[in-house]
C-alpha cells in the first residue's frame, strides 16, 4: 500500500486553557477526496494550519507527502496548495497579475508563469474578466480564482478550507465539479473542509466528522451510518390506531414475530406509542400492506434513510462517538 499523503499522529493544539484540537489521528490516502465536516469552531481550520506548518502543534506529528510540516514547512508548501476560507487578492491587480505573483513566489520563471496563469484562468472560467481588477470580484469569482492560484504550483495535494461557503448554488456546483475533475484528471488528493453536509456528501470519498477538536468518526457514508447508528440504513416508524373501537390491537409482539420471518429487519422497538423497525432495505411498502391485510388500522408511517445528515445530527446531539 502506498504511503498516505497526509498523516496526523496524535496531534493536539492548545491556546492557553482552550484545546482546539485534541489528540487527533487522521490518515488521508493518495488520490482521494476527503471531507472534513464539522461546525464552526470545531478545530478544522487549526488542523489545516498545522498541516501547512503555519502553526505548530502543541503535541504530535504532522506529515504531508512524507515530510514533517512542523520542521520543513517550505518543502510541504511546495507540494500543497492551500485555499483559505474567504481568500483575498491584491485588489488593484488583475487576476493574471495575482496569479503570476504566486507563480513567481513558487520559483516559476515569469514567461512560463504568464502562460500557465492564462491557461488556469480559462480553466476556472474567468476569461471574461481577465483584465478586471480583482477588487471588483464577487466572492464566487474570488473563490474560483483562488482555485487557479492553488493549481499554479502543480500541487500534489490541495487543501480547501470552507471553499463553498457564501457562494450561490450554481457556483457551488461548478466548483465541486471542478474539484472532481482535478482528482480524476491529475490524481490530486484533496482535503475539503466544510460545515455544509450536502457539498461534502456530494464529492467526498471519505468523511471525517469533527466536533470540539476531536474526530468523532471517519469513513465513507455507508460505513459511517452502519457503524454509528443502527447497523441498518432505514428506520421505519409506524403508528396504529389502537383504540377500542378500531378493533384489533397492534402489538410489539406482532412485529417481533414478523422480524423472525423477514431477514431484512434488524430490530424492532416501541417508543411513545410508535413502533420502530430498523431494516437494511426499504420495506415500508411491504410492511404497510401486511398491516392492512391483517386488519390493523395504520395511521402513521414514516421512513428515514440514514444519510450523512442523520449521522451529523446524531453526533451534534451528543450521540455515541465512534472514532476509529
Amino acid at each position: 500500500m502506498a504511503e498516505p499523503i497526509i498523516q496526523l499522529q496524535n496531534i493536539s493544539k492548545k491556546y492557553g486553557d482552550f484545546t482546539a484540537v485534541d489528540d487527533l489521528c487522521l490518515t488521508i490516502e493518495k488520490g482521494e477526496i476527503f471531507g472534513l465536516l464539522g461546525p464552526n469552531g470545531s478545530g478544522k481550520s487549526t488542523t489545516i494550519l498545522m498541516m501547512l506548518g503555519l502553526t505548530e502543534p502543541s503535541a504530535g506529528e504532522v506529515k504531508v507527502c512524507g515530510i514533517d510540516s512542523t520542521s520543513h514547512p517550505i518543502e510541504v508548501k511546495r507540494k500543497v496548495g492551500y485555499l483559505a476560507e474567504d481568500v483575498g487578492f491584491y485588489d488593484d491587480q488583475t487576476p493574471l497579475e495575482n496569479l503570476v505573483y504566486s507563480a513567481m513566489l513558487n520559483g516559476i520563471p515569469k514567461k512560463e508563469a504568464i502562460k500557465k496563469a492564462e491557461e488556469l484562468i480559462e480553466r476556472v472560467g474567468l476569461t471574461g474578466v481577465k483584465n478586471k481588477k480583482t477588487g471588483k470580484f464577487s466572492k464566487g469569482m474570488r473563490q474560483r480564482l483562488g482555485l487557479a492560484d492553488v493549481l499554479i504550483k502543480d500541487p500534489e495535494v490541495i487543501i480547501l478550507d470552507e471553499p463553498t461557503s457564501g457562494i450561490d448554488p450554481k457556483g457551488v456546483q461548478d466548483f465541486l465539479n471542478l474539484i472532481i475533475e482535478l482528482r480524476d484528471e491529475h490524481g490530486i488528493s484533496i482535503l475539503f473542509s466544510s460545515h455544509d453536509l450536502q457539498h461534502v456528501q456530494q464529492v467526498c470519498d471519505r468523511i471525517g466528522i469533527f466536533l470540539e477538536g476531536r474526530l468523532m468518526a471517519v469513513g465513507d457514508i455507508r460505513s459511517l451510518s452502519a457503524k454509528l447508528l443502527t447497523g441498518g440504513r432505514y428506520l421505519i416508524e409506524l403508528g396504529a390506531d389502537n383504540s377500542r373501537e378500531a378493533g384489533k390491537k397492534l402489538t410489539l409482539g406482532w412485529f417481533q414475530n414478523l422480524a423472525s420471518n423477514m431477514n431484512e429487519i434488524d430490530s424492532v422497538s416501541e417508543e411513545n406509542g410508535l413502533f420502530k423497525v430498523l431494516s437494511s432495505q426499504d420495506i415500508s411498502l411491504v410492511l404497510s400492506k401486511k398491516i392492512m391485510e391483517e386488519g390493523y388500522n395504520l395511521n402513521f408511517l414514516n421512513k428515514k434513510e440514514f444519510g450523512i445528515e442523520a449521522i451529523y445530527n446524531h453526533l451534534m446531539e451528543g450521540g455515541t462517538a465512534y472514532a476509529n
Binding site: 501547512l52 503555519l54 517550505i74 518543502e75 508548501k77 511546495r78 500543497v80 496548495g81 492551500y82 483559505a84 474567504d86 481568500v87 483575498g88 487578492f89 491584491y90 485588489d91 504566486s102 513566489l105 513558487n106 520559483g107 483562488g146 492560484d149 504550483k153
Partner: peptide
C-alpha cells in the same frame, strides 16, 4: 485584513 497574507504565506517562502 484583505486575506492576502495567508495566501502569500501558504506559498513556499519563509
Amino acid at each position: 485584513n484583505k486575506g492576502t497574507l495567508s495566501r502569500v504565506l501558504s506559498q513556499p517562502i519563509y
